[in-house]
Simulated assay, not measured.
Amino acid sequence: MNKAGSFLSKTEILDAAEQTLRRFGPDKTSVTDVAKLLGVSHGTLYRHFPSKAALREAVTERWLEEQIILPLAELAEPEESDSLEQLRKYITRLSELKAHHAKQDGEMFKMYASVTEEASALIETHIARIIGQLSSIIRRGQEADQLSQAESASTLARALFYATARFHHPAHAYEWQSSLIGQDLKQLWELLARGLTAAARPHI
């Protein structure tokens, strides 16, 4: 269907771009490919996104929000009484989500890995969302005297995020197929857990 001259929503463009990227891969997909799928000229798309890079970033941003941030948000809700266990579940889920998409959604994950190197502002925002969710869990744990209060919640959250980067940063995706990766994360968590609870005030 030719949509030239009609209203084209951002959602329609992103849906078509994601479909095209999965079909041809991020390296071979062009704005013209997306335009053909939508039945419009490539100039129409450029009125919404100034470049192919901007379109790729928008698709990646939406993908990260839907596939990573929203599932994790559920684990950051104040329902778990044990904050340390909630943190463990969160980090484990973050690692599982990244590994799953690296294996099952290869083209989109490849684009995400590429954008990680090219669009620092987008990735910084993504990381800030995750660290913010971790901070909320840690803050509740500190208020309940379950977690260390030696550092601020945001400082501990950043440290936790970067300490576990091997298990969720796309640069390490080649390692996630190892049969030992789960054991490695468990051993690291045991060390981190001792630090996270070291200065917590014991309940009397």
Rank of each mutant, 00 (worst) to 15 (best):
91 I>A: 08
89 K>D: 12
9 S>P: 02
57 E>P: 04
5 G>M: 04
10 K>F: 00
60 T>F: 00
200 A>S: 12
166 R>H: 13
159 A>H: 08
77 E>W: 10
97 L>R: 07
196 L>T: 03
90 Y>T: 08
32 T>L: 11
97 L>H: 04
185 L>H: 03
160 L>C: 13
165 A>E: 15
11 T>I: 06
136 S>G: 13
93 R>S: 14
203 H>P: 05
202 P>H: 01
4 A>M: 09
18 E>L: 02
167 F>W: 06
161 F>K: 02
101 H>S: 07
67 Q>P: 04
180 L>P: 00
15 D>F: 00
147 L>H: 07
99 A>R: 13
31 V>Q: 10
85 E>N: 14
160 L>F: 03
102 A>V: 03
97 L>T: 05
113 A>I: 02
179 S>A: 12
167 F>R: 01
143 E>K: 15
119 A>Y: 01
44 T>Q: 14
126 H>G: 03
202 P>V: 02
116 T>L: 10
9 S>R: 04
135 S>N: 11
108 M>K: 02
173 A>Q: 14
152 S>L: 11
24 F>G: 03
145 D>C: 13
141 G>F: 01
164 T>S: 15
65 E>H: 11
96 E>N: 12
125 T>P: 01
113 A>M: 06
2 N>H: 06
144 A>V: 07
199 A>G: 01
